[in-house]
Nucleic acid binder design. Structure first.
Lengths: 326, 326
DNA sequence: CTGTTAGCGCATTCAG
DNA sequence: CTGAATGCGCTAACAG
């Protein structure tokens, strides 16, 4: 494993000169440059970004992405979007599955590995103690939706009102919100927005189903809880789902029970994951501009973000699973 | 950001002693140990795994997972399985999306970041030049299915024969293999195995559909090519799909065209991803023991792998999408 | 344009 | 049981 020293010796220059050639920006004579590059190729030398990071920024180029439910396709898309843009900016992304049990173990791991930033897509906030540890290690944090960090990313859910307006106009009276997360997390913006709008529209019947995601996967939770609703004789005109994975599970349960979508019940998801398009019926959902959101986060890490507060206008993707379209 | 020096000073000991306390295995007096630990907690010191890696192993604890199609849920499950086990062993995993264009760019990135191992799930082999670069950087490589590295992971597709046997007995005569990858990659073990078995069973009609994954996502390729088959008036009794994502796309196209699954056509996937269970009809598929495979790879990285050649017996998961079950 | 020196945070000899 | 010195591969002043 040839290092800077070997190539310096073989090229008959100092180690610093090698550094300069590698850096590209410093002034080096054409001859020296050529000579050094030749030796570099000859010896198959590869730059060590890690050592450079240690000397320069005191951290690596790794961004830690903390994900609460690894079975949700949404995070795959989010990762994918972030990943592409991150690489352009010289960062690499490591994904970590977190839950209530391993959260701090993962944080220890991540801090010890001196990542440059932690993006926590999870629900649980980070304890005081660890916030301090993270600060000590000079790591920045993004916790979408909490506003407890430098960047405030807010969803504009104006579209929810439009959807419910259309639903009501089309005659819908009985609504259910398939939340499937523990009740203690019912501060979620989506749930709140939908409930407020339903109240404003004097909906006749409004239920919320709580549950146990991410202990069980979202897709199976959607199935399980919808099946339970059906067996309990509950009937709804519209089924709002916290996310598309839940919706897909729910649709399976509905179809199994012989209910027709959207004739008997309309299903609306959230996230606009790729899978929704290929469901039968295809899934009506809310798009949150994943690509854009991903870029905002990476821009923040790279120090390129101009404004601190970002408002992301969500929009509806009308497909077959909802009766009321345009 | 408190370092070893600060806590050594504050505790009135040498830096080496701090190292010993942190290491845990060396002999340190109880008093000193306690004193040092106290200061560590006080100052919120966090161990720097990166610097340690540099001094010790000359590499990080990062495993690079190279994935060819980030839209395929299979890789999410594979990553998930690897990730859990990797963390237990002290490794973290970074995922990289690769294609024909960015392959070597990604490799440069990964090598420069001194990952401990590269797991290449992609199809394209790595060039001589880069194999050398990787060796120079002391990085190990796993390229499943190629046998070109230290570990030889082989799938036992005996189950394919059983499936085809059952299909033929049930009266199936016309078969299609939805490959959807470029023709030049038709050495794939699954395709080969199915074709051989079909030949052995004197199948009346056998077609293979090639395509353009991963330029387009597998799910949309499955949809697109199946739709084309239908429009061309092709009729099959059994549709084998290279993977479940293709199968899901294909089923959407079949249902859209009013074909009944499995009455008119049986669909068989490969991978046994979670999504298949919630399709309507649920997807009959081949399970490849993802969890086990993931563990084998991590064991290899950790130097715990006993045998070099691993034979993984795949099995069939019978659900609703195939007429011939048990 | 080029070389020397010190230091990033840690592990690892070698001496006490 | 403890400490001082050296080095991992690189960057960053400071000199020439």
């Amino acid at each position: 494993m040839a290092g800077r020293k070997e190539i310096a010796d073989k090229a008959g220059v100092s180690k610093t000169t090698v550094t300069r050639v590698l850096a590209g920006n410093a002034s080096v004579s054409a001859k020296t440059h050529e000579k050094v590059m030749q030796v570099i190729n000859e010896l198959g030398y590869v730059y060590n970004e890690v050592a450079a990071g240690l000397a320069k920024r005191k951290c690596t180029a790794v961004i830690a992405l903390l994900v609460p439910d690894m079975t949700n396709y949404y995070y795959l898309q989010m990762f994918n979007a972030m990943s592409r843009y991150a690489h352009e900016c010289g960062y690499i992304i490591s994904v970590f599955a977190i839950n209530n049990d391993n959260m701090y173990e993962v944080l220890d791991n991540v801090i010890a590995n001196r990542v440059v930033c932690i993006i926590n897509m999870g629900l649980t906030p980070i304890s005081e103690e660890y916030v301090r540890k993270i600060k000590n290690a000079n790591i920045s944090v993004i916790h979408p939706g909490t506003g407890e960090d430098a960047i405030e990313y807010v969803y504009d859910y104006g579209v929810v009102n439009e959807i419910i307006e259309k639903a009501v106009v089309s005659g819908a009276k009985r609504f259910c919100f398939l939340f499937c997360m523990p009740e203690r997390l019912n501060h979620d913006q989506r749930l709140r927005t939908v409930l407020q709008s339903l109240e404003a529209h004097n909906a006749e019947k409004v239920d919320v189903v709580y549950g146990d995601v991410p202990e069980i996967s979202a897709i199976s939770a959607g199935y399980k809880h919808t099946k339970a609703l059906i067996e309990n004789g509950e009937k709804y005109d519209v089924l709002f789902c916290l996310n598309d994975m839940l919706a897909i599970g729910a649709m399976r349960a509905l179809k199994e029970a012989g209910l027709r979508i959207p004739q008997d019940v309309s299903v609306i998801g959230h996230d606009n994951i790729l899978l929704g398009e290929f469901e039968s019926p295809s899934l009506t959902t809310i798009d949150t501009n994943i690509e854009y959101e991903a870029q905002v986060y990476i821009d923040f890490v790279a120090g390129r973000l101009q404004e601190k507060k970002i408002v992301n206008k969500c929009h509806m993707v009308v497909r077959e699973s909802a009766k009321f379209g345009k």
